[in-house]
Design a protein around this nucleic acid. Structure first.
Lengths: 210, 210, 210, 210
DNA sequence: AATGAATGAGCCTTCATTCAT
DNA sequence: GATGAATGAAGGCTCATTCAT
């Protein structure tokens, strides 16, 4: 909370937004320092180099993702698998699509196209728990082991839908809802849940048909 | 007539792969020219500047996307809406996931995170026709106008699933099938079709429930 | 007069104007060829290289200058030295300041600030004859040998005035007559002659005062 | 505080000489930095870009010119117009032709053939005051308003002579005094003054003859 | 004779990083 | 702890020139 810490924090905040908006390469150290009202050498001083700053920024994104996982998990504790899935989706949709949370998922999206060493942590602490939880739920619903290909495909189908509503320039150009309002969020979550549960059940019926 | 075209084409091929793999900024003109065995000034000579080359590369990606659209459309001509949707998905999955077609969708993915002026054409000639066709099919299935919010959400759900299987570093780290074989492709397409048709029908039933 | 010669001439015309307007370095071979509607390689083909073209352009400027000298000389044949000087000035002023003759003197001006090997010829065939003729006239007027310092200074004084009225951006900004009309030309010539003859006579009186 | 200023100053000094000698385009940033013993990026750091450095160099030239104006003006305070003109010429000739002051007038000469936006300031702060002072003096001498065409032509005649003795490659090739010694300077100034006063008086007599 | 694609040297500029203060 | 001047590597681009046709 001394003056140094303030500068460090301003750098982190500025870097988070800039990296999320423009990507690692397109942001210059000077850009970050200008926004953070810090010296050109501040980044190197506090974080070693530009990449060190980026890593630290990504760490907080990973933690945010993990927090969302935990919240979703405990929200469904003690419910039926179907209800757990429904709540999981709701939590995710609300957290991810609430304005201001953009930066976190923009950073993750960028990691998907331009991976850095930090992606490993992100997958292990952010994505894998989510996938495993979804696998266990869906496995239970359709009566298959969580590692079954059919289960994994359903997980992919559910997961893919939750990301589809992130604001992106294509949706904007198509005139689709790009800035989801609070009530929209509820409808979106319900749609994904209903659509997905029907899909999962269909896959389940097919699995036991022969 | 042969030598000119060869150099130009080599540049385009090299640029397509490099831009898709690393993104516009991370690729240097020298990289492209080295791969294409051409002079550093060749890019400027043939395309004006680096951005001009990128635009031309993207144009071919757009045309590839449009070709896929047309193929999918004519493959379902004269069939029931459900069957049309099934075939549409099959065509897309096969085209998009066949190894070697990576570059096109990597470029599109990059346009989504770092849009350029070329994105407009891409949306109008590539994405919008796809969305409109899917909207008409699903609208017919659930008995709603194509512009209905419920229809659009179903379109999003279907479309999101088709992109989910594109090779990406997260799927690779999760140990999911990242390089889909020929038979996998069929299974994936069937899964998406079955999952989606069930989802769409559920939404349809809900629409007429009240 | 064959087609080649036409291209060659177009190149010379275009180069003359461009070199005069922008200077050697700021004009590109492509600029010249574009204006002359010729191929990029045409300059090298016809003139060896850019400098070769420049030299040829300058040659024609030198010849124009020499022609002016000769005209001025023969216009004063058989007259008194004062009258010869008067006519010399008149000829110069008219030739130099008539619109369209700009290029020649712009090129010479540029040779003064950025000399090329061609400057030698220009001095020997253009400037020296002029200076020698003026020296002989003024020497006669003030009764001194043409190589006398006082004579040479008068020559400098006369010559300097004739160049002063060339269109230039400073005169333009000062609001001075920048595009001398036909009648202005006469007045200017008369002024320079009257001013100069008075000056020369004063120097002459001083020379014989002691 | 010392090292910074030194580098910046070394750059300015080096740039002044090089720009004056070779012109803006023919000088490379590397040339300047080599002479100034500075890094290639130093120009960009201190002056933004090459043009920024040039502008700053030209600013000092403008200030030098203005200082000369002021000095000449105050040297003639309280004298007759003729004497003022004589002193004005003397000051100018000495300042301009003293070796080492080359650079300033070389830069100005280059601005005349290749004007930049900086030329406006140069004219307003350097040339116009000079012209206006000369106009007022000569107007007084010949009894005409300073804006009279005859006055302006006399100003041009005087001014042109003062520039004529600047070292230039043509004078050098003609064998004229190109490196004026200290005593030469006095003689030159006297010549110009005597020649010009006689010329001005002649114009004055003609003005009142009718 | 003339073309236009291709070349390679070189230029200005940017940028992450370092270092003395 | 923090600054800002200075660095050097590298990038995009321009341009005169060449070469096969």
């Amino acid at each position: 909370m001394s003056r140094d810490t303030e500068t460090r924090d301003r750098l982190l905040k500025a870097a988070e937004r800039l990296f999320a908006d423009r990507g690692f390469k397109k942001v210059t150290v000077r850009d970050i320092c200008r926004v953070a009202r810090a010296n050109v050498a501040a980044v190197n001083y506090h974080f070693g180099d530009k990449l060190g700053l980026y890593r630290e920024v990504l760490q907080s994104a990973i933690e945010a993702m993990r927090a969302t996982n935990d919240a979703a998990r405990s929200a469904g504790a003690g419910q039926s698998p179907e209800e757990q899935l429904r709540r999981y989706i709701a939590i995710f949709v609300h957290r991810v699509l609430t304005p201001g949370n953009d930066t976190v998922h923009k950073l993750i999206q960028r990691e998907m196209t331009d991976p850095t060493p930090a992606l490993d942590t992100l997958v292990e602490q952010g994505v894998r728990p989510r996938v495993e939880y979804l696998s266990s739920l869906i496995g239970e619903i359709i009566g298959c082991p969580p590692a079954d290909q059919r289960v994994l495909r359903c997980v992919a189908s559910v997961q893919a839908q939750t990301i589809a509503y992130l604001p992106n320039p294509i949706a904007a150009r198509l005139g689709l809802a790009n800035q989801p309002s609070a009530e929209n969020l509820g409808e979106i979550a319900e749609h994904i849940a209903a659509f997905s549960l029907a899909g999962v059940h269909a896959v389940g019926r097919a699995a036991h048909a022969r």
